[in-house]
Design a protein around this nucleic acid. Structure first.
Lengths: 201, 201
DNA sequence: CGGTCAATAATCCGATCAGTCGGAATATTG
DNA sequence: CAATATTCCGACTGATCGGATTATTGACCG
């Protein structure tokens, strides 16, 4: 019983991790259960034992990935002192070396495409957006409380910051020849600053 | 000859339009040639006669759609007088009533997801980004020439504006409950203004 | 009229893949 | 150690779909 639970956790984690890697590699629409099984060093039947359907597994994989990203964002943000540094602390999103970045963007694009036609994925993305707002909202609130940010709509501002991060990221990731990391960092910084700094330089 | 060419154009347009509607409805990964044939009121063979493969048809469909969007952007922008109005003239992207909007976003998300794993789609998106830069770059250049915009990097600024439009649009479209049209318009306006206005209000 | 050929329809084929199932292997229990 | 439960395997099935092949139509021409 005890052991069973442990093994189940190990296997599920193992399968989800394999799924994560494979999705990032080939995409949701191209992935097969055989792929995942091979990557997880299990058979198809083995996977079926732990996940009753492909759809379920994919969604679990997304949730797992989201959690990892938010944890990472929280950690990095917590290391910053002031609220302005905090809202600017997500520039690791524009770092090619980061393994989470390389896995994350293809995953996110896939999720967005699915959300365009599938309501389940839409609510998954809703969770994703909300996660960012929770992170960024804290920082903005801190800035407002300390008087540093002349902002009235905390939620709206946090959402806008998050949208800018993502808009810049999309270009940076999908068209790297035309969008350098310097471009991404400097313009994201500029646009985000303007939202929290009012008219100040 | 004359008639044949005309028929070919009619049929191709008919097929592409059907493909466009179906892609927007069910997505690239779910679409089938039978779907498209039914939507175009032709048989599978009829489609095969004009497009040798599914992939080819889909890519043609994208190009066609891009052209329609750019034409629309150009038209709307041309109606604006000053450079600031011009860079702000793309708020029609945040209009639920617009038919191009309803078709366009799912298409674009699909294209981005494909681009995450397929280099062909990556260059397709490159064209897409470049199209926007061409449009926006003109407006920014005009502002710089007239002295209204204290901007040094015209290209980079145009790319950032385009990225902001898209980042905001993604949220607005995929999570409408949490992102109103007013939110999209006001924050896009604010962020974009700050990029071309320097430190002025 | 009959031939010809492009346009279109109707079938067919082979590949792919998610999910199933019987049973083998392994672990647990009493 | 026997009995039972759990975990895992991999061949198989049924459905789907893209593309190819074959059949039909109908317009134009000689």
């Amino acid at each position: 019983m005890e052991i069973n639970l442990t093994l189940e956790k190990i296997r599920k984690a193992q399968i989800i991790e394999a799924s994560l890697r494979k999705i990032a590699e080939v995409g949701i629409q191209n992935i097969t259960m055989d792929d995942i099984a091979a990557e997880a060093r299990l058979s198809k039947g083995g996977i079926a034992h732990y996940f009753s359907s492909k759809e379920l597994l994919i969604k679990e994989t997304f949730r797992d990935f989201f959690a990892a990203i938010f944890l990472r964002g929280q950690k990095t943000m917590d290391q910053c002192a002031g609220p302005l540094d905090k809202v600017h602390s997500f520039m690791w999103l524009y770092n090619w070396e980061d393994p989470l970045v390389n896995i994350g963007y293809p995953m996110l694009f896939d999720a967005m495409a699915m959300a365009g036609h599938d309501t389940d994925y839409r609510s998954l993305l809703h969770e994703w957006f909300d996660g960012w707002i929770e992170l960024l909202g804290c920082a903005v609130e801190e800035g407002v409380a300390s008087g540093a940010f002349p902002v009235t709509d905390i939620q709206g501002t946090a959402r806008a910051i998050s949208a800018i991060y993502q808009g810049v990221a999309t270009r940076w990731y999908l068209d790297k020849d035309a969008h350098s990391t310097e471009w991404a960092v400097s313009y994201a910084r500029k646009a985000i600053s303007s939202l929290v700094n009012g008219s100040k330089k």
